[in-house]
Amino acid sequence: MIELKGVNKVYKTGDVETWALKDISFKVNDGEFISIMGPSGSGKSTLMHIIGALDTPTSGEYLLDGKDVSKMADDELADIRNDKIGFVFQQFNLLPRITVFRNVMLPLIYAGTPKEAREESARKALISAALPENWWTHHSNQLSGGQMQRVAIARALVNNPTIILADEPTGNLDSKTGEIVLGTFQKLHEQGRTIVLITHELYVAEHAERIIHIVDGQVKSDSKSHPRRKISMKDYKD
């Protein structure tokens, strides 16, 4: 469960103060699938960095599983990211010179998980992310965009995180592969995962159950997705 209480983020350039986030408060319960939506410059990226423990708020509280993350030091934040957060990026950010399997295991290597357990988790994660097994030993730069994003999803799943944080996961994909990726998230949600999807496209946002709208660093609306889009995975067999 994540909870933000009056979170502010202020950047200072000389004497000029820029308020990237102003008094943001909301809660995401376990098992929820939400979208954070807003135009570019709205502060949604800053919000994602704070939720993802890449950055800390200037003031306010951020509780992740009841733990206050807002005042942690760099290495403590690294532990939180390793343990509780799974990132999926627009650019995939896979390491090109190692195999798919090793890419997926990487968070567990930093967690210090023993080899056997690591391989077992990576296998499960790749199956959940629906990447066919014959691709597992390929180098990640031999994969298509959709496949790469599914490897990234597997990597996000591998440490069994509290939330999966996806930043424009379909931004670099064509609409068909984009739908497959969104369908994968939907399936993970059905399995009980908590997913936070950050996007500027309403169409993508509508795949979640709930949409938080951010404009000028403030929550403009927080409501159920209506109508909610559903993807039938039967249409996409590969």
């Binding site: 993802g52 690294a78 990211r81 390793n82 990026f89 950010n93 390491l95 990487l106 968070p107 930093y110």
Partner: peptide
């Protein structure tokens, strides 16, 4: 640089 960013995002500490 991007690789270092990714490693940090998935939990690498400064020492790693």
């Amino acid at each position: 640089t991007r690789e270092i960013g990714l490693r940090k995002a998935i939990g690498a500490k400064k020492r790693d």
